[in-house]
């Protein structure tokens, strides 16, 4: 049975409340003082985009800049040597690159414990790299890895809307629902993301998720595999792989199995990535991580889509290989 809407809504609120502590320092090559400038500290929502922080970061770091002429949208952020893509939400970037252990009710190496103790959860999150230490740069923009922002924020908006349209297409087989949103609704959708306002977001998102006369076909999902999991001798692409390169896997997964059983995360992963997820019920080599938590394989895809999607409508699932 599908989860009751009260649980869906409660889980969605929890996810929207998720946040991460960030410590952002100015790259020494952009800093006019020899000793490092003070870091900018902030507790920031996992579902939000780092690009929205730039005006605040710029005000903070402007006095320390070697070149005071640069604008806020020339900046870019990195974690170690990985430039952080503006169009990935913070929580996804953290799950992909921070190396943090996901919160896990059933951590690997332990037998199939039915009820995990609170101690377990704490132990598995104890080493979290908090605050997450990022660097802001104003020079040497990595054009071959990042899309540069613009003063009006159009790039961010376009990319977001494209993703929302794609999610709609995956759910319904057409982008009609998004296209038929009123101007006010589509403006409000983007505003709710910028302001991190769940109530405003729901007022539009509920229209997207429940279009009249349409039946949900597929759950929008992107699966991110780290370089180590996607080494591939058959690759014939001439470009050299950049630090932080991910293999992104997408597939249309029906909501029901041929047996009419509901599609679970386990059955979906087993279909899409059988070599990494050879079992539908037991995690052997890797864990699927969403919003900092290892997902249970028994979770139904339709429930996940309603409760745990990012603001663009996608489940962005990071695959973390067992250490």
């Amino acid at each position: 049975m599908s989860a009751p809407s009260s649980s869906i809504s409660a889980l969605q609120s929890k996810i929207w409340n998720g946040s991460l502590a960030l410590e952002i320092r100015l790259a020494s090559s952009d800093c006019r003082t020899y000793d490092k400038s003070e870091p900018y500290l902030i507790q920031y929502p996992r579902l939000s985009y780092l690009a929205f922080l730039l005006p605040r970061l710029h005000t903070f770091f402007a006095p320390s800049l070697i070149n005071p002429e640069v604008s806020s949208y020339d900046a870019w952020l990195s974690f170690e040597d990985v430039p952080l893509k503006w169009h990935y939400p913070l929580g996804l970037l953290y799950d992909l690159f921070s190396g943090a252990e996901p919160a896990d009710l059933d951590p690997p190496g332990q037998s199939e414990s039915v009820v995990a103790s609170q101690a377990n959860v704490e132990a598995s999150t104890g080493e979290a790299p908090i605050p997450w230490k990022l660097t802001i740069h104003y020079t040497d923009f990595p054009y071959d890895q990042l899309i540069q922002l613009d003063p009006e924020g159009l790039t961010m908006r376009d990319t977001f809307i494209n993703s929302v349209k794609e999610a709609d297409y995956v759910r319904n087989g057409s982008a009609r629902t998004v296209m038929s949103l009123s101007k006010e609704d589509s403006d409000n959708l983007w505003l709710s993301v910028q302001n991190h306002d769940l109530l405003q977001f729901r007022s539009v998102n509920n229209k997207l998720l429940n279009p009249p006369g349409m039946e949900l076909r597929h759950v929008p999902t992107k699966i991110y595999l780290p370089g180590s999991a996607s080494e591939d001798d058959t690759s014939t692409i001439p470009e050299e792989t950049k630090p932080g390169h991910m293999r992104v896997v997408q597939s249309l997964i029906p909501l029901q199995l041929p047996s009419r059983q509901p599609q679970t995360l386990g059955t979906a992963l087993n279909t899409i990535l059988p070599s990494i997820f050879p079992s539908r019920r037991i995690l052997l080599y890797a864990r699927p991580v969403l919003h900092g938590a290892a997902l249970p394989l028994a979770a139904r895809m339709d429930d996940l889509g309603k409760a745990a999607a990012y603001t663009d409508g996608f489940l962005h699932i990071a695959i973390v290989m067992h250490g």
């Binding site: 169009h87 890895q145 899309i147 376009d158 494209n162 297409y169 692409i237 470009e239 950049k242």
Partner: peptide
């Protein structure tokens, strides 16, 4: 369909694409 910058789905590099909707 509009043309915008996006991330190439395989190489990950920024690329323009003709939106397929």
């Amino acid at each position: 369909g509009a043309i915008t910058l996006t991330e190439h789905p395989i190489t990950g590099i920024p690329a323009y694409f003709v939106h397929p909707c």
